[in-house]
Amino acid sequence: MLSYALRRLISLALSLAVASLAIFLVVEVAPGDPAGFMLGTGAQPDTVAALRAELGLDQPKLERYLSWAGGMLSGDFGTSYTYRTPVAGMVADRLWVSLPLALYALALSTLLAFPAGLYAAARRGRAGDVAVMGATQLGIAVPNFWFAMLLVLLFSINLGWFSAGGFPGWSDPLAAIKALTLPAFALALPQAAILARVLRSSLIDVLGEDFIRTARAKGLTRFQALWRHGVRNALIPVLTIVGLQFSFLLAGAIIIEQVFFLPGLGRLIFQAISQRDLIVVESVVMLLVFAVILVTFLTDLAYAWVDPRLRRRR
């Protein structure tokens, strides 16, 4: 297990290095000079040159890349061109909204999907299965930001149970969780629908295996056999989807933050784009990509834990 984890760790480091280079190169080809943009069209060339020097934009590209990537490794993301404050601090403040939101949605998605998938698999071909599958088909088709608007219409405007937007901060954890509940539900629904379908399909495959037949022959009910012997064996494709979903949830959070006016990474990145604060854009994108690569790495380790055969195969 240790050598497998080490191999995956090397792969993780390589992926991060290539991703950081790709992001830097893509942002570097962006037309427009941030210094010129900040000072406006009437700025004198020597003023623009002085600001470029101050921001470090006059350095060779390779030097800038190494400085940016090396800085990120030590937690120094550089200084925002617009606000002149450390990017790391700005990102950390916003991360306290976006990350809990994505994790909250992931938890909700799993909580909704497992009972639905188990129930549908146990009732395969019957009315309950058809109803669950119909509901998941609909869930997959619903855009999460539209579902968010419907939730606001029902629970905020009509019933008044939740606020329609904004975030009170973590000084009052209950209020913060309450503010993230509708956004998390909106994010979780389509993912829960996908997860439930994958779980059902995976469980149905496992139900046809000999060991389940043996368990049934020993007197276990269909549901007991499914719960005790089926779920762990059906977990591998489910783990893949849960891992993939994290990236969708983080990216989806960027959109949902717009619906609920949440001060997360999404708001930060859109502000940074409009202000051509490229160092913030590349840092936030790198952070999102890092999260996805890290989750993929953890998912691979989880595979190896669930199914020891995979450690040898890879």
Binding site: S15, V18, A19, A22, S247, F248, L250, A251, G252, I254, I255, V285, L288, V289, V292, I293, T296
Partner: peptide
């Protein structure tokens, strides 16, 4: 690597 970049990103 491309999969690590969600389409929105």
């Amino acid at each position: 690597l491309v999969f690590a970049f969600p389409s929105l990103v």
